[in-house]
Amino acid sequence: MSSVLELRDVHRTHGRGPTAVHALRGVTLRVRPGELVAIMGPSGSGKSTLLNLAGGLDGPSQGEVLVEGRSLDDLSLRELAAVRRRTVGYVFQDFNLLPSLTAAENVALPLELDGVSVRRARRAALGALSEVGVTDLAGRFPDEMSGGQQQRVAIARALVGERRLVLADEPTGALDSGTGEAVLRVLRERVDAGAAGLLVTHEARHAGWADRVIFLRDGVVVDSSGPLDSVDDLLEHRS
């Protein structure tokens, strides 16, 4: 099965000369539809850099990032912006919902920015809210929702429309453990329904929801728990 996200020997260096920081040093990674991959590692291990590269918010110093088989490096700025709008969705620790918009408007916004009519965008937003189990919150503003409810809305926004790659940066960091678990359950369900997910977390318990856990140290993958890419490659070549 083809990957939604692929990193090929990706390096990212910030700065130059003796003060250069090697945030990532040769990371190779694939995320397929229906797969949730967690990235674990201490502060400064390169987790956030990896997520930024995966979402096209930053470019590699060396190596290649492919989203749905297309190298982000080959895209014009306009095409890259389109990939970020149409293919990639983000879930942040602090939800990042716009306070002046209702839940449905927040979820519809990325579609509207992409030129979809207000009516169609709203219909898609209600569908996405229903998929994460919060249809009844459609008319509420963020400050009328609990943290867990806001994060569900954020997941709906990340995966509304055709988007198939969700990048989650510590999505349960601001939630208590029970609510955090409910949010991960929703994320897991959306991935099981066919999305591809990359989850950055420092909590082992949350990484337990992933199919594969990658351990980063000093910009290098030091270990992984779950099927290895090399094994997947073998299977892929057999089929």
């Binding site: 674990m40 082992a204 318990r205 856990v213 351990f215 992984s224």
Partner: peptide
Amino acid sequence: TAGVRALQ
């Protein structure tokens, strides 16, 4: 890694 695998 063994611990995380058990958690999974």
